[in-house]
Design a protein around this nucleic acid. Structure first.
Lengths: 207, 207, 207, 207
DNA sequence: GTCTAACCGAGACGGTACGTCCTGTCTTAGT
DNA sequence: ACTAAGACAGGACGTACCGTCTCGGTTAGAC
């Protein structure tokens, strides 16, 4: 059969015993579980390997440090809903709900600021953190861009990323720093302010 | 001599050798220096004591853990300018400048998210972190309240804390997570959106 | 009392918490026990620390490597009998008995060749091994010197160390390499050959 | 061609790909080189395979442990000269020279005591070590037996093995333990003492 | 000409020990 | 009751080898 012949014509490029893919899964699962239990600063490489039933070397062969491992584990969490609900307020409500639910049902809320701290330190892992955050942040930006395309937000408006930062920022500020709640009422207020502000700014630019 | 007599008239309440107050200063200075150099996760209690030229026990006698020590060190950084520049945009520009300058000239930007991570973990230190952040965040809230008092922002407007979170949040989001710059132009845009949004929301409440 | 005053006038020269002398004893005892059980190549630093009920750092603080630790442990074994039995044959019988008994009742026989192997490698530990062997070998040389002093061996005889090497050598050769027994009869024969050989060589030098 | 025909007439008894005989040579050579460089305790199976350009499994398929491998490597060293020089002193001088030269030009001197240590531990490898030493020790015993046959040593003399142990023993003692030199003068003295001692003991038995 | 069996290099695997580092506590002598 | 100094138990770090295994691929005799 064609596929068989094709597969045979692309032989294994790396030699030697292939890596055990079950180990990957077990390690990532163990990491995620331990992150949820102990938070990032309580994550121990030895504990990860032990819980995964894997030798330490097998762990280090895959991820050289805690940051890489953590990002691999977080990547298993399903992305934020990228679905188009048809309206900006609907999209933003969905995004808020997803974030709030994740942080309410797990202790993963401590992981993101921990990674942010590492990112700021400008270590070798900074780039990986950057890339991860960029990927996961995409749904927020996409929601804004859809709103502009729909005409919900003025076309002459500010940078979509800045608008996303304004909306996501208030949530992060409350969740991570001040501890304020981001309930439905507060979120509606925020969205209202930002949408009306953008429209007003578009019709009378400048201060 | 007067001072001697005064000292003698207020005798030490606790017996034994009094604590060396120079040690406090040396420890806090060492902590701040090491935080700036290595970030929070690179801060070592041993290194702090060594750089301060102080025994480890002396350090632990004053601060029981890394969080307390870090907060004590951060408390040496002058507060954000609480001065009233006379206008909201002036106040906010001053606040932004102070934060951006601090994070540009030192590597202290990694400390706040690190503390946030500890805070979320709900350790015994959470309360201290909460209190510290609340104190340091006050100037932002005060600026909003002054603007409302001045009439720059509508009196029927949203919770001043929420407005402050919106403004500070976009900055934190960019500095800590997405890495976007918070330059003068972006800041002006943000302030413009928020102010106009608040006014519009006040005149036509609801969505 | 004089001694008390004297002690007080020589204050502790090293500062800080003094080393726990019980740990020294526990470590050396554990080492000796493990050497007897597992031999030199089976000796594990972790096992020593664990059996002594001591942290690994405490072990490494005292002895930087396995060789040093082993020598410290062997030094706890009482020296060979240095007593003067009054005759060369008596002295040599006593020395033989002591060595044979030690190697029959323990498995320490593997330790000396292991150290010899390290000695030959000319590592940093070679000097320590040299010094240990020299000390422990002294009774053999002393026995020869006493015999010369007594007139049992000719005064014009060969180097006492060479004679000792001849006698001890045949024992080591059998115990460590060829596996031959060094029983009373063989030992008497050896001593007889060496003594008579020395006397004959003294009376008619050269080949 | 003859050889081909001969090979064909003795077909392989086992099926499958035959072992690569070059690998044997490369492994043994690599082992010997590494033993000379690092000594027995510094010998690493991985290093042997790597230097031989061979997979680890190929090494383990041939020799199950370090002792077997080491013995195989040592077996490549030419045996001690078994030639009959016509006199005992000549034979012994030749034997001494061969041993001293080997240990001066290589660091193989550490290997024999290391094997001795393993032998004493009575592991599964003890028998192999015993056999190797016995084979290699044969020339010493043969030299003594030739001397007895020649009449150089008394026919009623002690066990030839014991005499050989006496002579070889003093050398091993010095080389491995006390570090004394075995130069020409010392060796002549030793041989003189032993020969004269044997003759004297034969003419007047007992102490 | 397959088929089967044992080999081959490469390198991942579970496991164990290494020697170092740091934490938070404790024990000295001395202030 | 404090101080500096530094030892202590405990525990995690990241690395190095061990001996085994699992791949794809090779090389022979047997069928």
């Amino acid at each position: 059969m064609m596929l068989g012949a094709m597969a045979r014509s692309y032989p294994q490029l790396v030699r030697g015993r292939p890596r055990d893919e079950e180990a990957d899964v077990a390690l990532v699962d163990a990491t995620l579980a331990l992150l949820a239990e102990q938070g990032y600063s309580g994550l121990r490489m030895e504990a990860v390997a032990a819980r995964a039933g894997v030798a330490k070397a097998t762990l280090y062969r895959r991820w050289p440090d805690k940051v890489s491992l953590t990002i691999a584990a977080l990547s298993r969490i399903p992305e934020l809903p990228a679905v188009d609900t048809g309206s900006l307020s609907g999209d933003l409500a969905a995004l808020r709900d997803a974030v709030v639910r994740l942080f309410k049902t797990t202790r993963l809320a401590s992981v993101l600021p921990a990674l942010a701290a590492e990112r700021v330190r400008r270590t070798s892992a900074s780039a990986k953190i950057d890339a991860f955050i960029r990927t996961r942040y995409q749904p927020w930006i996409a929601a804004i861009e859809r709103a502009i395309a729909r005409g919900e937000l003025p076309r002459t408006s500010a940078d979509p990323v800045l608008i996303a930062d304004l909306l996501a920022g208030v949530m992060m500020q409350r969740v991570f720093f001040t501890g304020g709640r981001v309930d439905d009422k507060a979120w509606k207020t925020v969205v209202d302010i930002v949408v009306k502000g953008l429209r007003a700014a578009a019709s009378s630019p400048g201060g």
